[in-house]
Design a protein around this nucleic acid. Structure first.
Lengths: 211, 211, 211, 211
DNA sequence: AATGAATGAGGGTTCATTCAT
DNA sequence: GATGAATGAACCCTCATTCAT
């Protein structure tokens, strides 16, 4: 589920590594990408040195966390595609995004800083591509089923997903169901129905892969 | 256009202040909220001392930039309401957002850090409230005109606006018209048409004011 | 006497700068080139920040100290040339080197590390060239006077000087006059007298400049 | 060739030890005395743990390398005394010093740091004493033969040797024969010939032993 | 008032040394 | 015994902020 580390690590080293990534994920979310490395190490229950042995600098750690997040997202996409009765249902489930998933993806998408670090990471790219591939299949199928408008592509949907993932729910959100309402609006927008044609041409997965 | 400072400043002091805010706005966007104060000062053509005389700390500067942005947004909203033939047109114009406006608002909305600093600033709140008021009028009118679905409130629209503002366009975006396509989808979603009813109740401007 | 700093510094800044260089010179000698920057700063009576403002990194500080040393050496060479009755006397005085001068030059010559840092510094090169020029004149004159062997060049003498400067006198040296004896041996070697011819050709100042 | 370790080591342990000393000698020369222990271990093809088992800390390693160097120097001195036809020839050979020998001794002599570590090491002292003894014999014999000036002692010669060893030849040195020229000058100075008497009294081997 | 020098706390990173496997 | 993982002290350096000029 996590990025395959170069070499097979000793059992305890492996455990440390995972704890560090988990700690970093949590701290990045709580306090931003610039939490002191030492706090991350403390939370992971290791010394700074250990952290640095595994991740030579902050960017390496950010990449590791992003990989972990994308891996989770991919797993979720695969599960949705496999378990939901229709392509449309799978898309709905993906767009909804479980709260923990949204929280973790939030990190990878927010802040230009994180993004530029993650953008060129081949490992992350592989995950992204796999996710886009699933998305392409689902979109194509939903359109063939006639439930999704024909003038959108997997890229358009991905952009919507990423927009939704950027919304970090604020306290009163919960009762107001803000997230669910925005999601419903977007789903409404994606449904096959007479409406204003979209400008330009469908944005495909490849359009995004090329970035 | 800018927040009215307590006292009327001497012309040159005034000029200094504006240059600092402009420099900060630009640098925040280019390099993030944590650019060295000294770089901002240099870009503004003043010494750090002068910067600190005007803004006691970084947060004060962030607030000033946010106020400037919100003031611009308010002006745009007022212009849209006054100049567009229908409420719907005004809403479309607001949601579109000029590129410079989007860029500048981006700052205030992204990053939890900026937001917590700005959230409790009364000046910024006043701007936000004024903008919400205009939005409420426009939404109400558009619904009365029958072009906008009845189960959304000004708050829902504001959330959509803020989502759109969070998208910082990437290079290939331009030709793909990604932003325009997302916008068109959202407008489609807001149009009065038979569709799935939204969960919960309309989110009003007050809901957001209460945050 | 000290390297001309780029800009005219405020009086107190100037004083700080000089104190830093003096402190660094002393500490480098006492504890080696890798004394903590903080100790240097403390000894100079300033904060680390001040040190770093003036010298962006350790190498810059090493260069500054070397420049100071070379400047002192040049002054001594000029004085010797001007004050001594004959060229030979001036050379003797130069080769002798006052104890403080030897101590300070020691730094610039010892350790490959210091040398590679200093080697490419234009300021230091200028000093070195000026010193070599004086040496060339003295050597030429002493040879014309017939007191110095004809098969050596200023470069050979410079090498001998640098060798002697490398001898950091140890405690019992003083009474044993070790330094003076070695110096006397070398002077003996340089005297015009029938002896074995040297291998190769005279090493000139230019030979060393080319390094 | 190397200092006899307390216990006879097993063959492979022995090999490890030698590899470590060789690696340290090379790295010290290349990168200075403060190369990371881990790099030395890697170069020696062992883990850090193994290195530390053999040498409790860096100083112990420095001492081991110095011992190795001095042992080599002693062997060279013995060979010179035994193989050269006259004492003078043997002294010339010793002062010349093969390039590898000079390189390796360089380490022990340069940097006050290394010297203070090595100075008090009994093993190294034994080597030094043995070398001085040979030197004393050679000097005495050369003086009795009438080819060496009478007012120098083995200590004076040792000082000259150490000075020469401090010169780490730079690239253009080779063709300029700088080293050979300095050596020739020094030999000239040591030759029995009418010349200025040296200050003080001859520096003996004991004078240096007492340091 | 403006300037930019000085301060020093704080975070990044390295590496000697120890110790579990 | 050998290995290499873990630790944390120590040093480097930056920059927010203060203050003398």
């Amino acid at each position: 589920m996590t990025a395959d580390p170069e070499v097979r690590l000793r059992a305890d080293a492996r455990r440390n590594r995972d704890q560090i990534v988990a700690a970093a994920k949590a701290m990045f979310l709580e306090k931003g990408l610039d939490v002191p490395m030492e706090e991350i190490a403390r939370r992971a229950g290791v010394g700074v040195g250990t952290l640095y042995r595994r991740f030579p600098d902050r960017d390496a750690l950010i990449r590791a966390v992003a990989q972990d997040n994308f891996a989770q997202m991919l797993a979720e996409a695969e599960a949705a595609a496999a378990e939901e009765p229709t392509a449309w249902d799978a898309l709905v489930r993906l767009l909804s995004g479980s709260r923990p998933l949204r929280l973790s993806m939030h990190l990878a998408l927010l802040s230009q800083q994180a993004w530029t670090v993650v953008r060129d990471d081949p490992e992350t790219q592989r995950y992204r591509d796999a996710i886009l591939e699933i998305l392409e299949n689902l979109v194509g199928e939903a359109q063939r089923e006639g439930v999704m408008r024909a003038d959108v592509g997997a890229g358009d949907v991905a952009v919507l997903v990423s927009l939704l993932l950027k919304r970090l729910p604020a306290p009163p959100d919960e009762e107001l169901q803000v997230h669910d309402r925005v999601l419903a609006l977007m789903l409404d927008a994606l449904r096959a129905r007479p409406g204003a044609p979209l400008p330009g041409r469908p944005v495909t997965g490849d359009d995004l892969r090329r970035r």
